[in-house]
């Protein structure tokens, strides 16, 4: 019931809800309902007052001062958009997931394959193996023979310094009596 009609009824019968009066003020009721409501209001001072308030509200809105932008947003926006968005980029960004997946599943062209991550990985592994092989070949001749593992320089730290006589046979190794 209408909140402005606390008894819920007026001389012309039960009062309508605010919702109906609001719709009547908008002329948004079907013609029969509208006619019935207008007839009610004619005999109901409360509803007449409410309807007048709602209509006056509309007039008050209509009388509000105009708000003007006073700037051409379009000019600013066109520059901004031209700098940041090409149609192709927009299309790619806006394409649905199904389109993106279909694009991925399509057989690659040689150019697209050449740029793909898979081709990059294969190339990286191949290059690594090749460089590794080269290093192995270079290292091989430098490897010292097993017999020369004792470095001559290390002999100064031995029990018999270089040039001294060996105290007994066999103390300086099998080769001779001096170091």
């Amino acid at each position: 019931m209408n909140s402005s009609c606390p008894t819920g009824s007026c001389p012309s019968g039960p009062c309508p809800a605010d919702e109906a009066l609001s719709a009547l003020a908008d002329a948004a009721l079907p013609s029969e309902a509208g006619t019935g409501l207008i007839a009610h209001c004619a005999g109901c001072p409360r509803c007449t007052r409410r309807l007048a308030e709602l209509r006056a509200l509309r007039d008050a809105f209509a009388a509000l001062p105009a708000i003007r932008l006073e700037v051409d947003l379009a000019a600013q926006l066109v520059d901004r958009l031209q700098a940041g968005a090409t149609p192709a980029a927009r299309k790619r960004r806006q394409s649905p997931w199904s389109v993106r997946w279909a694009d991925r599943l399509r057989p690659p062209t040689p150019w697209r394959f050449g740029l793909s991550p898979f081709a990059g990985s294969v190339a990286a592994v191949g290059l690594g193996l090749w460089l590794g092989g080269l290093l192995m070949e270079l290292e091989a001749p430098r490897s010292p023979p097993a017999a020369n593992t004792t470095l001559a320089a290390m002999s100064v730290f031995g029990a018999v310094p270089p040039g001294n006589l060996c105290p007994r046979a066999g103390a300086c190794g099998a080769s001779g009596s001096t170091r």
Binding site: L69, D72, L73, A74, A75, L77, L81, Q82, T86
Partner: peptide, 16 residues
């Protein structure tokens, strides 16, 4: 279709 100028015209229609 990506025509920024056409979009600018739309902005002009509705900006206020």
């Amino acid at each position: 279709a990506g025509d920024v100028a056409a979009f600018g015209a739309l902005v002009r229609r509705h900006q206020e």
